[in-house]
Every structure is written in C-alpha cells, then in structure tokens.
Computed example of a mutant assay.
Amino acid sequence: MRNSKIFRALKISLCLLVIFSLSACDAIKRDVTVIKLGHGLDTSHPVHEAMLYMGERAKEKSNGSIEIDIYPNQQLGSERESLELLQIGSLGMTKVSTGVLENFIPSLKVFGLPFLFRDREHRFKVLESELGEKLLNDGLGKRLKGLTFYDAGSRSFYGKEPMESPEDLEGLKLRVMESNTAMNMVKMLGGSPTPIAWGELYTALQQGIVDGAENNLPSFYLSRHYEVCKYYMVDEHTALPDELLISTMVWDKLSEEEKVWLKEAAMESSEYEKKLWREAELEALEEIQKAGVKVTYPDKEDFREMVQPMYEEFSKDPEMKKIIEAIQAVK
C-alpha cells in the first residue's frame, strides 16, 4: 500500500513537471488565455472530437483570446490524477466519467444506479434540465466546476465466454471503474468486481487477470477489446455520462465574458457530440460483428430485479432519495 502511494505521488509529480514545462511555452501569449485540457481517451473517440470542436468554438467566440490545448491518451495523467491536478490548479480542464467522479462528488453516484433512465430521450432531458445543471455545480466545494455532460451511451457486459443472462456473470472477475456503485452492482449480479485502469485492461484481459468487463460499444470497439472478448451482452445496465470540468482556480480568473464564451462552447460541443456518438455506436456494432463477436440481447427485467436492493440502499440517504425521485419525475 505504501509503495502504491509513493508510486502515485511520483507519477503526479511527473505530470506536474510536464505541465509546468508546457506553461513556460505559453508565457509569450500575454493576450491569450491558454487552458490545458488533459484526458484519457483516444483521438478517434467521439468525446475527444467534441472537445476539439469546443476549443474551436471558444476560440471563435473570443476572437482568439481563449485557446484550449488538448492532451489525450493520459499524457497528463489518469482520470483520478487529472482531477487531483484540477483541484490544485495545475491543470485547467479534464473529462472524466461520472463513475470515477463520484469519489470526489458523492451526489454523482446516482448515475451508477442500474436502469436509472427510462430511455435515451429521458437521459438527455435529465442532463439538460435544471437538475442536471445543479449536479454540474455540485463539485464547486471541491474546486471542480462542471461545464457540460457528454453522452457516453449505455454500458453492457462483455467477456471471453458466452453471455446471455445474469447467470452467465456468476463467479466471473469483471473489470469495473474505481466506483463503489459499480462494484456493488457487479456483486449483486454474482460477479467479482476488479478495479483496473482503462489503459491496462487490454493486457489484463489477455493475461486472464479478469474474465471480462463492462463498457459502451464505441469504447469496446476502439480499445480493440473485441480481439480478446468475443461475447458482448447488450443489457445496458447503466448510462454513465462523461463530464467536462474546469478547475475553479482557473474559472475564477476568467472574465464574465470569457465564462459565457466557454460555457456556450462547451454546451454546443455536447450537442455536436450526440450525433458523433450515435454514429460511433452504429459503426462499432457493425464492426465488432464483422470481427466475429456474438452480440446478445438478454431480458433486462432479470437484471432489474437483482439490483433493486441498490435503490433501497440509496433511498436511505434523504438527499439521494430526493435526486432519484427528481430524475424519475422528468417527463
């Protein structure tokens, strides 16, 4: 445990060194606000493309006075490390899954509840409502301001052995994010949850460290996990959105006009990403089937019944119960 903490501290220190070195190059841009955005996605991912679009829109709206430099593929750290760098103001922006973010902002663990949304339309209505805006701002006390949510589709299970029902998950070692909610869900479905960094998962699947995982279709395809796992079960248990965040230490230094430009650019990129995401889902489904992956569509009611105790547990917290009821009330 101690060695793990030392390694993590060294890794963060290295990320800081890289960021500070990059910052020195920006010193000559005296009339330009340069914001560094680090994330862990591949450059072909729809969310990365949406963030590039956001950067273009912010630059246009500000007449070139706002520039967003984007560093993908965990160049500046993992999701958790990027969040920690935001909190101390060493990194300007990042994109993380709300599954990881729940460790920093407890209210967001609501998104980890299985079958929370009725359908895709309901999900968007919630994320774009006053409730969605409130959830974006729930991290202000942690120096994290949410600017927008990005669609990350629905997550489903995949593995090396046939999957057609919850019974097929029994006893399997399944990779999950660093999320207590995700781990509890897998336990209720009979699996053994194993947190592993996304970048290390392909090797873990190859070497049999885990038997399978759960994620959305584009991520399953772009990560090439279909080369190892030939079974994808579309149970769509959760729909965890990604969240685009900015450090409040950076946000507070922006002028009111700059804040408006950046917020508008972020929201426009979210709309743009919806279309990209839908196209990516259809492409991924077609390509993995071409690669020999067997895609199955189980009865979701079997899953709903097994995870119902999670709702009962969440409802013991008055604030969480209020959020769940508010989401369910959105028509």
Rank of each mutant, 00 (worst) to 15 (best):
156 S>A: 09
304 R>W: 13
35 I>L: 15
229 C>N: 05
31 D>Y: 12
196 I>H: 06
71 Y>N: 09
292 G>K: 11
24 A>W: 06
324 I>C: 04
29 K>F: 15
182 A>G: 03
209 I>P: 00
321 K>V: 10
102 E>T: 09
296 T>Y: 00
319 E>T: 07
253 K>Q: 12
26 D>Q: 12
84 E>F: 06
208 G>A: 08
112 G>I: 04
191 G>W: 07
102 E>H: 05
51 M>C: 11
174 L>Q: 08
50 A>V: 01
88 I>A: 01
258 E>C: 02
313 E>Q: 13
309 P>I: 08
212 G>E: 04
6 I>G: 01
132 G>N: 08
292 G>V: 11
104 F>S: 10
87 Q>P: 10
118 R>K: 15
102 E>F: 02
272 Y>R: 01
164 E>L: 06
90 S>L: 06
300 K>E: 13
147 L>Q: 08
263 K>C: 04
114 P>Y: 08
118 R>F: 01
11 K>W: 06
285 L>Y: 00
89 G>K: 06
36 K>H: 14
172 L>D: 05
45 H>P: 00
82 S>P: 03
80 R>T: 14
131 L>T: 01
54 M>Y: 04
293 V>D: 08
136 L>Y: 04
307 V>S: 04
301 E>Q: 15
48 H>D: 05
152 A>K: 03
122 H>W: 02
184 N>V: 07
26 D>N: 12
303 F>Y: 15
27 A>T: 13
247 S>Y: 12
77 G>R: 07
212 G>T: 06
162 P>E: 03
44 S>F: 03
44 S>Y: 03
148 T>N: 08
331 K>E: 11
118 R>D: 07
314 F>Y: 13
177 M>C: 03
27 A>P: 05
82 S>M: 10
17 L>P: 00
48 H>C: 00
306 M>G: 01
93 M>E: 03
222 L>P: 00
312 E>D: 15
53 Y>M: 13
24 A>C: 04
200 E>Y: 09
270 S>N: 01
